[in-house]
Design a protein around this nucleic acid. Sequence first.
DNA 1: GTGGTCTAGACCACT
DNA 2: GTGGTCTAGACCACC
Lengths: 123, 123, 123, 123
Amino acid sequence: MEYNTATPIYLQVMDAIKRDIVTGRIKPGEKLKSVRSLAVEYTINPNTVSRVYQELENEQVCFTRRGMGTFVTEDTGRIAQMKDDMARNLVHDFLDGAAQLGFDRNEAAQLLKRYDPAADVTS
Amino acid sequence: MEYNTATPIYLQVMDAIKRDIVTGRIKPGEKLKSVRSLAVEYTINPNTVSRVYQELENEQVCFTRRGMGTFVTEDTGRIAQMKDDMARNLVHDFLDGAAQLGFDRNEAAQLLKRYDPAADVTS
Amino acid sequence: MEYNTATPIYLQVMDAIKRDIVTGRIKPGEKLKSVRSLAVEYTINPNTVSRVYQELENEQVCFTRRGMGTFVTEDTGRIAQMKDDMARNLVHDFLDGAAQLGFDRNEAAQLLKRYDPAADVTS
Amino acid sequence: MEYNTATPIYLQVMDAIKRDIVTGRIKPGEKLKSVRSLAVEYTINPNTVSRVYQELENEQVCFTRRGMGTFVTEDTGRIAQMKDDMARNLVHDFLDGAAQLGFDRNEAAQLLKRYDPAADVTS
DNA sequence: GTGGTCTAGACCACT
DNA sequence: GTGGTCTAGACCACC
């Protein structure tokens, strides 16, 4: 994984895990990797992994059973809501940023086509 | 101006000025407010304004004339390019975030309608 | 270290560090001294060292890892290029200055011998 | 004339005038342009021209006769010495800079050939 | 008046 | 412990 120096590593790892959850690569109730093995996998400090798990717990995305490890919440509603929140945030940030550049909603939608890196120009 | 505690003030002020430039509220070649007066207006320290102007100069958005002040670049191409960059970034962040949630480009475009807070449902 | 009052301290410290890098006294990838310890060593304010490190980062001479410190780039090509640039600048400034005094390239080369304080006259 | 933003304008103008003197474009004893006309010619503030003339007077390159204007010194020895000083400084700066990059005098002389922008590679 | 530099000292986030 | 940001207040050079 490549880290962006601008944002804290623990946030980037949190996001990676959340993505795995909302996209179903990690199932509800599934056990997450141990702090040590995740630290190795992501080549980060175990302290940082601990913080990641703590923050995910704060957001009620995970829970910890003493001596057993950290698990994804079994509350599928919570997961769906999380995905919803993330999508809503995405849309809000995009429209907000576009508005600050002077684009209204319709123009913003057109930006999507104009600047889509993979878009066919004629489509 | 309201500051977001998550991102440095100087970046937020930089963005505010860039927006004023790309939207034409500040014209090419126009003199920017003095360090001291902007500091008063934004209720921040003059040193922080200084940093803002220096970073903008690094990005070739502004230039400064000794003893005379700081001015917006007269290079309208640079300004257009800046606006382009800002829009492209916006689109990239949006599509990228959507992709990480498992949405392709078409689905992302539909998110815009679904989550637009001000959208009319029938439109 | 002795400071020349004419040029800003942070530029002088930047140059000192660059010299240590291009001459190999600091190796590629090596950790630089901490902001605080360099401040003590050079008897300047930690903020000034901070600025030095940031400017060096702008020039892609260094990079910083959150909480770990500032490191010399591992890109040896960049370092070679830096040395090249510094030498080229030196030559340019010299020939340019000589030209303004009315000396062409050959005459400039002869100035080197004539005014070299340590030169042996017969060599 | 193009100004370098790094060094004060008055120094750059001083240098331009000194160059005109040591290269003979302005003769010993010749009257310099008036403050106002030089200000127009160089598109700088008359105050800045005044400073230039004052500093040149300090360096005994010029002298002022009340109501008559500013004149180049008639002391040709002083002018020759000035040219000598400028050349010596040039050499010193060059050798000094080269030494800091780890080049001795011989290597420095070779840099001249290697980096001469107008040099023929085969020569 | 303008911006540029520097110090002192504080607080914060990250590892 | 690491660097990053911000404030306060000072001094300087330039126009």
